[in-house]
Structure formats: structure tokens, C-alpha cells
């Protein structure tokens, strides 16, 4: 690991100032579970690590504007157990799938949302776009865990965030501060994620000197929600596919629906076709199945990952059934 500086700001403005001194060459550190191995293996290099864990304003869960604001340093465990988030069961479902107390107790919301792809070419040092001598390695090599949507450009990896589908399905907004002190902007979480066209572009909108600080959820009301992840192994592992559903059901019929898939595209993947199938319908195993079919109707699998299309379809169907209390059996 190359040497670098370690900065430990106490406030958001200090963090932004410290990030801005080496624009493009500074890295944000929270728990470090993603960043540290990337630095140790020289997949990433940095001149400065900015440890934001002492910035108290980034912690905690509060009721704000009829909804709930969550600081990016809030841990998975805090999200799972917070009474303020009890009406958002799709978030708890995500934490349930992260089967390691070390990650539950230390992993942060911001760390999850900004987690870099688990693409094995990226993790072996070939960059986000995984190119070698002009070839796209996922195209010519082993792409079993790569994207089945949004993969026509140079990026073939899948978004690693486990929380993003659930938060996007709830209509979450995120707050970004910087690069100037006290500068802030709010935007919908689904717009936070980008599909990079170059290796330097990154997987989020965050520009050098900017910091993701909070996520805001609208009030839960009577809406129902669930996340369904397909896990290959029983231990700590990343989902093959996931789907989150948030449903507004009135008098037995779906008024509004939001279906978001995870781990199928370079960004979280909002499925309007799946949601459209549900509008005006009663949720039954049959309508849930039709929504799953619609969700994958435009999938574009690579040479070795067509199996993920079926898993994505099933994830959508089961997330909808789980949200409405109709999912039966162990799986």
C-alpha cells in the first residue's frame, strides 16, 4: 500500500475542505471494509484518506419533514433496530441478508451506497470498465456475475449497493455537500448513481470535494415494502440478484408501486414495466408473477449470466409477495 495522509475532520465543512485540497486524489473513509482492501491491493491509490467517522452530524436517525432522515454513518444494525424505521421493513430485510455481525455493527449506510463494484476484473486492477488491450474482459471472459440490464455501454459490472433498491423504491432523497463550504443539494437517490463511460468517472454523481451526508425517506404511511435477495451461500456473500418493492395498496388494489432491482445493472435498476403491471390490480401470486415477467422483458444477458434473468424475475415476484405477506415457504 502506498503511503498517504490521514485526515480526521470533526465537521462537514472541515471534511469538504480536506477533500478539496487534493481534488480527485482524496478518498472518503467510513468503516473501511470496502476501501482498505482496495488500497492494500493497490486497486485504488490515494494521496489522502479523509476519515469522516468523527463528524457527529453524519450520525443518527431523526424524524424530519414528515419523513425520516438518516445520517450516512448510521450502521446497518442501527437501521435494523430503529423504531423510527419500523414502518420500512424493506430496509430491515436488507440487514437480515448481511450475515455478519462485523458488517452489521460497523458497516454504514453511506459505505453501502458508495460501495465499489465487486466485479472481479475491477478488483484485480483492470479498472471499473475492466478493459485490457482494448478488450472488455467481461465480454470475452467470465461474466457470470455481471450485468443483465444497462450493459450495452462499456460498463458491465453490477452496482454493489444492497440498500439502494429499497431506498429508491421508497422515493428516498440524498443530501450532498461541497465542494464549497455549506453548499448543499438534495436529489432523488436514483439520480445519485451513474453508469460510468470512463474509469475515472466513478459509480456515483459525487465530484471531488463532495460528500454524501444524509438520506431522507418520505413518511411510510400505509405503504407496504419488502426486499428479496437471492443469496448463493449461507454465509457472508453478495446477492446474485435482489428486488425491492414498495406498494401503496388501497381497498385491495395497488394505487402506486415502485419496483427496483439490485445487482443486475451498473446502477440500481428501476423497473417501470413491473410497476405498471401492478397498478389497479389486486396483488396475488398471479399478478406478482406477471410483474416479475415484465421486469425482465427487456433484459440483455451476457454470454454466461442468462440464469440471472430468471433470478431477477423471481426476486421481483417474491419481493411483491413478501411485501404483501403472501410469500410462503422457506425461500
Amino acid at each position: 500500500m502506498n503511503p498517504f495522509e490521514y485526515a480526521h475532520p470533526q465537521t462537514e465543512n472541515e471534511a469538504v475542505a480536506l477533500l478539496g485540497e487534493h481534488p480527485g486524489d482524496s478518498t472518503i473513509l467510513a468503516a473501511g471494509m470496502d476501501l482498505m482492501p482496495l488500497l492494500q491491493q493497490s486497486v485504488l491509490e490515494t494521496k489522502r484518506v479523509v476519515d469522516i467517522t468523527r463528524v457527529d452530524s453524519l450520525r443518527g436517525i431523526d424524524t424530519v419533514d414528515g419523513g425520516v432522515t438518516i445520517g450516512v454513518l448510521t450502521t446497518l444494525e442501527e437501521i435494523a433496530y430503529s423504531p423510527l424505521l419500523a414502518e420500512y421493513p424493506s430496509l430491515r430485510d436488507v440487514v437480515d441478508g448481511v450475515r455478519a455481525i462485523q458488517v452489521q455493527q460497523n458497516g454504514t449506510l453511506g459505505g453501502d451506497l458508495c460501495h465499489l463494484p465487486n466485479c472481479w476484473y475491477f478488483r484485480s486492477g483492470y479498472g471499473l470498465l475492466a478493459r485490457d488491450g482494448g478488450r472488455s474482459l467481461p465480454e470475452v471472459g467470465d461474466n457470470r456475475y455481471h450485468a443483465v440490464f444497462g450493459n450495452s455501454g462499456p460498463a458491465k459490472f453490477v452496482s454493489a449497493s444492497r440498500f439502494a433498491p429499497a431506498f429508491i423504491a421508497w422515493g428516498a432523497q440524498v443530501r450532498i455537500t461541497g465542494p464549497e463550504p455549506d453548499q448543499e443539494q438534495w436529489l432523488p437517490l436514483d439520480q445519485f448513481f451513474v453508469t460510468p463511460q470512463t474509469d475515472r468517472q466513478g459509480v456515483t454523481l459525487l465530484k471531488p470535494g463532495q460528500l454524501l451526508t444524509h438520506v431522507w425517506l418520505p413518511g411510510a404511511g400505509q405503504k407496504l415494502s419488502a426486499t428479496y435477495e437471492v443469496l448463493e451461500m449461507e454465509g457472508l456473500d453478495w446477492p446474485l440478484t435482489a428486488a425491492a418493492a414498495t406498494l401503496d395498496v388501497d381497498a385491495g388494489r395497488v394505487r402506486r408501486a415502485s419496483i427496483v432491482l439490485g445487482h443486475v445493472a451498473p446502477t440500481p435498476w428501476v423497473s417501470h414495466p413491473a410497476a405498471d403491471v401492478l397498478i389497479g390490480q389486486t396483488v396475488t401470486p398471479e399478478t406478482a408473477r406477471l410483474a416479475g415477467e415484465a421486469a425482465v422483458s427487456e433484459a440483455t444477458p451476457l454470454s454466461a449470466n442468462a440464469y440471472k434473468v430468471r433470478l431477477a424475475q423471481t426476486s421481483v415476484t417474491r419481493a411483491i409477495l413478501k411485501a404483501t405477506g403472501q410469500l410462503e415457504g422457506g425461500l
Binding site: M36, D51, A100, N106
Partner: peptide, 23 residues
Amino acid sequence: VDGADTVMIDGKATYAGTTFALQ
């Protein structure tokens, strides 16, 4: 992330190998 490096920091199970000493 194999867990053989697990310690407790302020009571929380933590991978010491992915924690910077300064933290």
C-alpha cells in the same frame, strides 16, 4: 473478510484487518 481478525471496538465486533489503527 474471513473473520479470523475479529476484535471488539467499543463492544462492536470489528475486522481489525480492515480498520486503520488511527481510527
